[in-house]
């Protein structure tokens, strides 16, 4: 017992001495000592999950981490479960979390005792885009057709999307305010489900991410009407943007990684470098092109500033929807 304690004190003292002496150099020396847990803020099979597993596979394949990365889904409560979990892991160097926009909307909507300012930002990998879709069999060709059709329906127009208060419903709310229209918002479990119901004619339109609707688009079953991006998306060169059409509607889904509060700077440096290398791989570049993702790499303080700015924006959006707590 005594032996163990003295040894622990000794090694702690040694470690801090090393830290003090070599703090600037230490970054390159730290390596994970055990498998790294990659918490995913969403359930299995969804868009966020697929992307997180893609990252894991690239990391594994290209040997970017000395220890395996283990994905763990904690999708409960729109990510509330994951956020709580990360809060409890304070100071742990072997946990990272893949986030989406529920990173800020969930704590805004439900009181779960989490302040995202406390977490450590690692890297933003990409911004996902949104497109307004209708069934290819419909007569709607342009945004004007669309607005007219929604108005003519008298509120019974069915817009499908993910859970209320999540990204799709925010984009829908933006549409409603901008055009002075009213739709019936039907929530589904995931983006793939939404796309399928649009093709099957059970809903009238959607605001799917391109990756979720791409398969059906290529098969000629879905028609993109307008993109919620500042510039046209490469995969859909003929689809105008909302901005082009004179409507300032831009919305992104961020795909980033964060770590618990109090992660050691050496570990932060290690993971940041790992994601930097990941960002440069061929696989990732091909994927972003094919799936119409914007690879927009951002780290450190700039990323934290981005998170806080987005949180404020979403607070306003949710407030306007009457969803804020």
């Amino acid at each position: 017992m005594t032996y163990a304690i003295t040894r622990r004190i000794a090694s702690a003292a040694l470690a801090s001495a090393v830290l003090l002496a070599a703090a600037p150099l230490a970054a390159a020396d730290w390596k994970p000592q055990k498998p790294v847990e990659m918490v995913i803020m969403a359930g299995q099979g969804g868009g966020a999950d697929r992307l997180a597993r893609l990252f894991q596979s690239i990391i594994q394949k290209e040997n970017l981490s000395s220890m395996p990365i283990l994905p763990v889904n904690k999708g409960g409560g729109s990510g509330a479960e994951a956020l709580r979990y990360l809060k409890d892991k304070s100071g742990d160097d072997h946990v990272i979390m893949a986030t989406l926009n529920s990173y800020y909307t969930t704590p805004l909507r439900t009181d779960i005792g989490v302040n995202i300012e406390e977490f450590t930002p690692l890297a933003r990998m990409a911004l996902d885009t949104f497109v307004l879709w209708v069934n290819a069999d419909s007569d709607i060709q342009t945004l004007d057709d669309y607005v007219a059709a929604v108005k003519a329906s008298g509120g019974s127009w069915k817009m499908g999307g993910t859970g209320t208060g999540q990204e799709d419903s925010l984009v829908t709310a933006m549409l409603e305010t901008e055009f002075g229209i009213k739709v019936t918002y039907v929530p589904f479990k995931g983006g793939g489900d939404v796309a399928k119901n649009l093709v099957g004619g059970h809903i009238d339109s959607s605001v799917n991410n391109p990756s979720e609707a791409l398969g059906f688009y290529q098969a000629g079953k879905l028609r993109p009407i307008a993109a919620f991006t500042p510039d046209r998306i490469d995969v859909f060169p003929d689809t105008p943007t909302m901005t082009e059409l004179g409507h300032e509607l831009v919305y992104w889904m961020q795909r980033s990684f964060v770590a618990p509060s109090g992660m050691s700077p050496e570990a932060v440096a290690y993971y940041t470098e790992m994601f930097e290398k990941l960002n440069a791989t061929e696989e990732w570049k091909t994927y972003t092109q094919e799936k119409a993702l914007m690879a927009d790499f951002l780290t450190g303080d700039a990323l934290q500033a981005y998170f806080l700015e987005e949180r404020a924006k979403h607070g306003d959006l949710l407030g306007a929807m009457g969803e804020g707590s």
Binding site: Q44, R50, L54, L214, G215, F216, Q218
Partner: peptide, 20 residues
């Protein structure tokens, strides 16, 4: 749920599940 994981695997290998 299991086929959801298989789907994830297919995406990883660069296959696009869907009508095509």
């Amino acid at each position: 749920p299991t086929t959801a994981l298989l789907l994830g695997g297919m995406v990883m290998w660069g296959l696009v599940p869907g009508p095509m």
